[in-house]
Amino acid sequence: MVRPGVLLALAALWAPAQSRLEAPRVGFVLDWENRLRPLYGIAGNFVLGEAVAAGVISAASSTRATLIKLERELVLLDAHGAVRMRWEAPPGGALFAFTPAGEPALVYFSETGELCRIAAGQALAPLWTSRDWLIAVGKPDDGRAALIVRSERGLVLRTLHLASGQLEQESLLALDAGPAVLLPDGLAVYARGPELCVKGRDESERCVSLPTPAEALGQLNQDWVEIVLTAGAGRMALRVGTGSLALYGLPEVKP
């Protein structure tokens, strides 16, 4: 056993006051009326909670925060769905990026092509404008932004200097792919035909078959991606944080 003098000393006793028991929240999802609902549970055992926001156009979550885009507002929610911050925003949808710690990092406004840095308690900081067809935004580290762009070549993963927007690196992600999402730890998740694939920074690729192709993807948290299936085939969740990919059905609120 390592002695305190050698390394460190943990508190002698774990104090219940310093712990918290609560319902595990996987993330937030949109229902058929564009209301934002918490998704509780663990793998294979999900429960939808009551709506906490309405009129939501875009949303993404981490374990610590949720970003939602309303018609004219960008809203930051805490892990419980309470509003932490509001910003004025252009109309239309948005793409979001979180830090690996789950803090909000970037927002890309699809209608104006504007990329902004987000920091709680501060005004949105415009960075630069892109006219490319962006379908996912990520923030791999402090100085860079990662983008997934739909181009004539297919889905392209680009790394850019955050402040200047200068292209630093570009690689082909997939030739013919559908929606995509960039997770905070650098994983790129994208739909390719009837498959959903995850590509790591080391270029390794893992894929899993879907019942029907994916229509949209969303970040539930660092480890979970929400999949909206085509043909009204429902919603699923992909867990990417463990070694093998695991797919689960999700409950839905339907009319």
Binding site: L10, W14, Q18, L21, E22, A23
Partner: peptide, 9 residues
């Protein structure tokens, strides 16, 4: 199901 967060000084 439950989520437990424990803080250790």
């Amino acid at each position: 199901v439950f989520a437990l967060r424990a803080q250790f000084p």
